[in-house]
Amino acid sequence: MRLMDLLACPMCKKFPLKLLIFRVEERDKPKELPSKCPLYCALKSGWVKDVKPTDDECLDCFSKEIVEGLIICEECYRWYPIIDEIPHMLPDDLRLMDPDEELEFMNRWIDKFPKEITESGRPFNEESLREYRVKKGRRRS
């Protein structure tokens, strides 16, 4: 979650990005606070100067590991998956080169995708998913 203070869209450089959490795991809190985010607080979805997270809230944030989630650029409608705790923030051409892992993610979580991303998300949207499902069906048979 603390990465959201650093992450910008690799294509259009928008910051901050929107975070949707699909699956989160609790882990031990650190004894001392290792660091505080300087600019943007994803826990409270706001600028640090406005939402002023307390040290306890920051410790709480350290104890939350996002296992699966969606990072959205509201500027260019690109979306980036968090899979197995790791954000995948590749540019379009590298995603198109090896799309299966991301399309499988989309297939798994499509019900939780915001409507505008399902419809006009880049580089993958409902049309890419439809093609993927057809391809997958063919592979099975």
Binding site: L6, L7, A8, P10, P87, L90, L94
Partner: peptide, 8 residues
């Protein structure tokens, strides 16, 4: 990708 840095 280092050519498309995903950071502010």
């Amino acid at each position: 990708d280092a050519l498309f840095m995903p950071f502010r």
